[in-house]
Design a protein around this nucleic acid. Structure first.
Lengths: 232, 232
DNA sequence: CGACTTGTTTGATCCAACACAAACTGGCGG
DNA sequence: CCGCCAGTTTGTGTTGGATCAAACAAGTCG
């Protein structure tokens, strides 16, 4: 591993409270792999032989139902650990991870996990927190899907995207990876048609500015009010 | 702690791979507390001062939205660990836990957690798996809410309840704690009216048998088919 | 640069499920 | 044992969004 990567990785929450020697020890076992745009990092139901930390790019994690419908579970941003199915006691990946842009990840063998955890207990403690916060997110999403109607769900989804992957630009916050109406629909449990209509309406009101696989939020505050309170 | 409780607890997944001495060490720090039917074990947004293992009874865990709507997150059955918010790095409980029948839980101080984990690393490893499997469940629920319509969601919910808390009786599997139409509605993101209509219809077809806060599944196989494939 | 692919917009129609409303019932407390 | 209350059933109207259908850009590639 080049030093460059080590410095990128040192401050990640998953390595919090770990001394540099231990960190080197862990990173030494990884290799960095490049995933071209559109390629898959792992596939749903495939044997979970590796776990990962994303260095560059963005991934879309999704589940496919038996009848072929897709649901976007989340997007992975640089610095996040992912594909830790085996740490959760699973033999296979529960979802598919796809590179939405050219991406690079650190990759460990799943076999290394028990040894690393045994040697560096804080790794397990930090992993509980990582998985725990994802559990919170998932529950938040369940609550939203149960109680809110589509307009608010989509507004919430955009705000979350802006927070996780927003690049502050001239006129508002731009989501800095390609994302389609279909993607947003699969995040919120609706159809691309409905998302398209909503974005068009919001564009007219000056809340967002969007195009082909591209969304910017011009007025986060107004969008937030829309997300919290009914249409008006 | 009386020996009785120790034997109940020894085989739980959370203590897997732990020798009896270590187990005693952990259990010694807990006290067992009784929660009468209808009382709360902890409240949403309250400071997370404890974590728990349920010994007897059943709990309903639920989230309340700002506008007062409730969503049932899950039911806790005996043997399950719950209220581990602080292990996931939270200061407060993200939900409310209510005893649906008279219940008893082992209670630890949250302050004991870091010490216990440091001394017994397998505790952390097992906790990752516990939290991980809840994350899977939550994602399954998100996928269901996104892609399935109400009838199938309710069918799935009943089958899950039967699996987790089903008591095999003469004519089918009875859910062995009081559960209302409203509860099922809050688990599936619908209204008690719709749940009532579905149960009535299923009763006519001989799939279930239900009454006031009481549901039995007479024909799990047919209900399962209904859950997997559309109405027909 | 024209053909084609992939993503987007917009219109028209339809229906599952929600909202509202009212009557019913089992079981508990006084 | 009667009255009350929480939980349930069932009817009727309404609607948010899905579905179906087409035309319309914006890249991309030969």
């Amino acid at each position: 591993m080049p030093n460059l990567d080590k410095s990128l990785v040192a401050d990640l929450p998953i390595f919090e409270g770990m001394n540099p020697d231990d960190l080197s020890d862990i990173i030494r076992e990884a290799q960095s792999i490049r995933y071209p745009k559109g390629s898959s990092v792992f596939q749903q139901d495939e044997e979970a032989n590796s776990f990962f930390i994303l260095l560059h790019g963005h991934l879309r994690v999704m589940k496919v139902t038996p009848d072929g419908q897709q649901v976007v579970v989340r997007f992975v941003a640089p610095g996040e650990i992912f594909g830790i199915a085996m740490a959760m006691g699973r033999k296979t990946y529960p979802a598919t991870a796809l590179a939405v842009v050219d991406s690079v990840a650190l990759v460990w063998s799943a076999a290394a996990w028990p040894r690393l955890v045994a040697k560096h207990p804080s790794l397990a403690v930090n992993t509980i927190q990582t998985v725990g916060s994802r559990l919170q997110d998932a529950h938040t999403r369940v609550v939203e899907m149960s109680t809110e109607q589509v307009e608010r769900r989509v507004a919430h989804a955009l705000l979350r995207l802006a927070q996780q992957a927003g690049r502050k630009g001239e006129d508002g916050i731009k989501i800095d990876f390609p994302i389609s109406r279909q993607d947003v629909a699969e995040m919120t449990g609706t159809t691309l048609h409905t998302v398209s209509r909503l974005l068009s309406a919001w564009e007219d009101q000056g809340l967002v500015e969007s195009g082909r696989q591209r969304i910017s939020i011009r007025n986060p505050h107004k969008l937030f009010m829309l997300a919290e309170a009914p249409s008006h």
